[in-house]
C-alpha cells in the first residue's frame, strides 16, 4: 500500500537513532553534568512517541513486545533494591558510592552505584510515560467507533 506519510516516515527512521543516542548520552552524563535517569527515560519515551506518530500502535507493539506497566514495576523494584543494598553494608538508605577501576581499553574509569539507581529511575519513567500514552491513544480509538 502506497503511504501518504513518506516524508514523515523517512525522517523518523533517521531521527530515531539520533534521539536514542542522545538519550544514552544524557543517561550516562547523569552524576556530574546535566542529565540522569529521569531525563534519559523521558527522551527515550519521546523517541517512541515519534515512532507512534509516524507508524501505528500495531507496528510499535510488534517491534517492542514489552508490557510497559511491568517495565515501570521492574524499574521501581531496581531503584528500591539498590537503595536497600547500601543498608546491607551498614550505610543508611540510598547511600551512593563510587570507585575507580583500570579497564584495558578505556584506562582509568569511574564506576558509580548511582548509575544502577538511575537504571531503575529510567525504567520507571519510561514505563509510566508509555503506558499513559498507549492507554490514552487506545481510548481515543475506541471512543471514535
Amino acid at each position: 500500500m502506497e503511504s501518504k506519510e513518506i516524508i514523515l516516515r523517512t525522517v523518523t527512521k533517521l531521527a530515531i537513532f539520533i534521539i536514542l543516542a542522545f538519550a544514552v548520552f544524557l543517561f550516562l552524563a547523569g552524576h556530574h553534568n546535566p542529565g540522569g535517569g529521569f531525563i534519559g527515560g523521558l527522551t527515550v519515551a519521546s523517541a517512541i512517541i515519534l515512532l507512534l506518530l509516524a507508524f501505528d500502535i500495531k507496528a510499535v507493539k510488534t517491534g517492542l513486545p514489552i508490557d510497559f506497566k511491568v517495565l515501570a514495576f521492574v524499574g521501581v523494584l531496581i531503584a528500591v533494591t539498590t537503595g536497600m543494598g547500601a543498608m546491607v553494608f551498614g550505610a543508611s538508605f540510598l547511600t551512593q558510592t563510587f570507585g575507580h577501576v583500570h579497564l584495558p581499553l578505556f584506562g582509568e574509569t569511574e564506576f558509580a552505584t548511582a548509575v544502577l539507581f538511575d537504571v531503575g529511575v529510567a525504567f520507571a519513567v519510561l514505563g509510566t510515560a508509555l503506558s499513559i500514552i498507549f492507554t490514552i491513544s487506545g481510548d481515543i480509538q475506541r471512543w471514535k467507533r
Binding site: 500500500m1 503511504s3 514523515l8 512517541i49 515519534l50 507512534l52 506518530l53 509516524a54 507508524f55 501505528d56 500502535i57 500495531k58 507496528a59 500514552i133 491513544s137 487506545g138 481515543i140 480509538q141 471514535k144
Partner: peptide, 19 residues
C-alpha cells in the same frame, strides 16, 4: 509533528493503518 498530524487526520495515533 503531533499538531500537524492532528490537523490533517484528526487522530494522533493510528491503531492499525492497514500495512
Amino acid at each position: 509533528v503531533a499538531f500537524a498530524k492532528f490537523i490533517e487526520k484528526g487522530v494522533l495515533v493510528d491503531d492499525d493503518n492497514g500495512r
